[in-house]
Amino acid sequence: MMENIFGFSISPSSAINMDKVDRALFEELCRVEPDAVRCMACGSCSATCPAAAFSGMSIRKVLLCLQRGKEKEAFRMMSNCMLCGKCTMVCPRGINTRRLVLSISRIYGKEDTK
């Protein structure tokens, strides 16, 4: 990739090719946490999250990223999750977000996918 020519650089493409995304882990997550697909992306969790100020954490976005195979992005956001449970309190769908975060931490991030 061309980098830093006259102070400009090219952002990596953000296009997602779903054919290249390995959905195995996401499907495993959905099996363990059926709640993962019940999110209606209202953003309540994003609005209340105290970690959002530091890493842009948002369960809504994490789910979206994992679904689309952008795992690195999801892990970066999740790295500041403090498990405080505010998102669980505000979720209108009653999703148990704390367990969701813990399950993601268990299923994802094995050495080969990191």
Partner: peptide, 19 residues
């Protein structure tokens, strides 16, 4: 005793950056 692959890391949070 449970194992997790992803561990949170808060080193990016500066103590004065907390507004």
């Amino acid at each position: 005793a449970k194992k997790y692959n992803l561990t949170p890391d808060y080193s990016n949070i500066g103590t004065d950056a907390v507004n």
